[in-house]
């Protein structure tokens, strides 16, 4: 049943996929130079092209026999990915929208991310007016692990198409890709945007469309829910919410040491496992002295603080790298 649908879908999708392939090659030639996956995709493309030459002639027999399963197993991935790419290029407006949303969602976290949102927005808007795909490409190229991101998208598409059970295995995989998702929420969102456009582009392709809807069903909760399911994104997105939650319950409004009001950074600051909160200035003063927590009198665990600092520092450097590259580009 599944294999049959794959055969049919790929067979019907084949001509349009070839069309997309042509556009894609011209559009993506620069983009895929550095990507391993891109090279692989080129190979797939040529395979598909070769197959499609025979495909038109052998479409009938192909449908009956399903003899090319090994190749067709690759093809859905290729097709979806190709379509995703194609729509990614077409959806400049969506990109702008998404990235703006992303910047909004990022903005409460820090001034840096707030700064980040500005170049992000401006760059994607410029990409919307100029080259539709420039914003996306450069953004992906800015990220060092671009290939991983593509790989992840492809894997996720394939998983959605293949079997829903794989969804359960997805989180562990995606754990490796947290950084990618964290950095490139908008490319991830683009896929959902692309799915919408895919339906417009290929209204005749019922099978593929249903597949896409399937993958939409797999994606939609993912687009909205997966970021929250991922620890890093949870930290990033829902921290203000948690703060609000805690501030009503637990977080004091003022520093118990200096009695000054805690700002957002201070109320995010939890230096001791005992839960005693204080402002960063007082913490610094204490660390310059005996370095014991005022709440429990235990010495501040330097390692914990360091790890926190590393996490924060890592996030900062990532954002900085991204925003600085944005600045360079614009």
């Amino acid at each position: 049943m599944i294999s049959d649908s794959i055969t049919n879908a790929s067979a019907t999708a084949a001509p349009s996929a070839r069309d997309f392939g042509k556009k894609k090659r011209t559009n993506r030639s620069a983009k895929l130079k550095q990507s391993k996956l891109g090279l692989r995709r080129e190979q797939w493309l040529s395979q598909v092209a070769m197959i499609h030459k025979g495909d038109k002639e052998e479409m009938e027999s192909n449908r009956r026999t399903g003899s090319e399963k090994p190749d067709q197993r690759d093809r859905p991935v290729e097709n979806f990915d190709g379509q995703g790419r194609e729509e990614e290029n077409n959806s400049g407006g969506t990109d702008r929208h998404e990235s703006f949303i992303e910047s909004l969602s990022n903005s409460p976290n820090s001034i840096l991310s707030g700064m980040n949102s500005i170049p992000n927005f401006s760059s994607s808007s410029s990409s919307g007016s100029g080259g539709s795909c420039s914003g996306n490409i450069t953004e992906e190229e800015d990220a060092d692990d671009d290939g991983c991101l593509d790989d992840w998208e492809a894997i996720a598409d394939a998983l959605a198409a293949d079997d829903e059970k794989h969804e359960k295995e997805n989180p562990p995989e995606s754990c490796q890709e947290r950084e990618n998702i964290k950095q490139s929420a908008s490319p991830t969102d683009l896929i959902s945007g692309s799915d919408v456009a895919v339906r417009d582009a290929k209204p005749d392709c019922q099978r593929t469309m249903s597949r896409k809807q399937k993958s939409n069903q797999a994606w939609r909760p993912d687009d909205k829910l997966r970021p929250q399911g991922l620890p890093n994104l949870e930290k990033q997105c829902s921290f203000p919410v948690m703060n609000l939650h805690f501030s009503s319950v637990k977080v004091p409004s003022s520093c118990p040491i200096c009695y000054e009001d805690l700002d957002l950074t201070d109320s995010n600051f939890l230096p001791c496992p005992c839960g005693f909160r204080l402002c960063l200035f007082c913490h610094k003063t204490i660390c310059d002295g005996d370095g014991r927590c005022p709440g429990c009198r235990k010495p501040y665990e330097r390692n914990t603080v360091k790890v926190e600092a590393n996490v924060q520092g890592g996030g900062l450097t990532i954002r900085l790298a991204r925003s600085s590259s944005m600045f360079c580009r614009s």
Binding site: P256, I257, F276, L278, C282, I286, R292, P294, G295, R297
Partner: peptide
Amino acid sequence: LDILKDQWSPAL
């Protein structure tokens, strides 16, 4: 009294 010496905490 210890809290007036080594057991003082700024939270006091």
